[in-house]
Design a protein around this nucleic acid. Structure first.
Lengths: 132, 132
DNA sequence: TGCGTTTTTGACAATCATTCTCATTTTCGG
DNA sequence: CCGAAAATGAGAATGATTGTCAAAAACGCA
């Protein structure tokens, strides 16, 4: 059931390729601009659609920072979370088996199935603390 | 240091009072409509501003469901998280000492201070599973 | 209690990311 | 190579949130 595959187009490959190269989180508009800069002819709409599809297929990560655009990122396999610096935006990937099992357990206790969750940790990193 | 208090106005009380009465999460627009219905003269802008202030003061809870408006809710004291049904939107408040300590520990390990976090658990509740 | 200062309010415009539309182009199985 | 089905993209539409700024309300103080 490759529900999320669709057809193999130049644009789709371009987005996927770009995501493999760049590090960190980027907004859809950001990615679109980068693609344009490197000469790829692609519409903003398509970037959005592609990102949505990739996110749905769990191939990329979506983060919704308070008060902003959605940010996308190719992430390492498996489920994980992010530790984000409020000052400089630097992000660290963290895995939390503890949280996973806890969330599942709690949900099950309340009769919930098909469980997923989102977790973001915000803080100020050492460097930004020194500056402030 | 009552930074978040500001002046005591009719509108501000109205929003606070409404939040005490209603259950569950509501969008700003929702709350605005309810206030209008019960005869309170208040502008949408003010509702937004008041909710923002209350959220900043940790007196209410903000949830940002995927693909939607911000939802606000008067929540019980202390830090907690939400288990939300994808089908009917019903929410259950859950506390997670496990998660709290884990998040703090992880953040500390990476040299982050002043740590906060957001966690939402999504699932399908028993009732909605039967229907589907 | 009355007055001036400062905050707050609110109608409306502005913003801005995201989604929709739909005609054109591209893909891919046969 | 052909035609049906899917994808693209430019621009319009959407819709929540934020900005603007003059008018109104609240509070401190005499």
């Amino acid at each position: 059931m490759t529900t999320s595959a669709g057809r193999n187009t130049r644009q789709r490959s371009a987005v996927a390729a770009l995501l493999t190269e760049v590090d960190g989180f980027h907004s859809a508009q950001d990615l679109h601009a980068m693609l344009r800069d490197r000469g790829t002819r692609i519409g903003l709409t398509t970037v959005y659609r592609t990102l949505q599809a990739l996110a749905e297929a769990d191939e990329i990560d979506v983060m919704r920072p308070p008060g902003g655009e959605h940010l996308y990122r190719r992430c390492s396999d498996g489920h994980h979370h992010h530790l984000v610096c409020r000052g400089c935006g630097r992000t660290v990937e963290v895995v939390g088996p503890t949280v996973e099992t806890w969330a599942d357990k709690v949900a099950a206790e309340h009769g919930f199935a098909d469980v997923s969750h989102t977790l973001e940790i915000f803080g100020t990193c050492g460097e930004c603390m020194r500056k402030a």
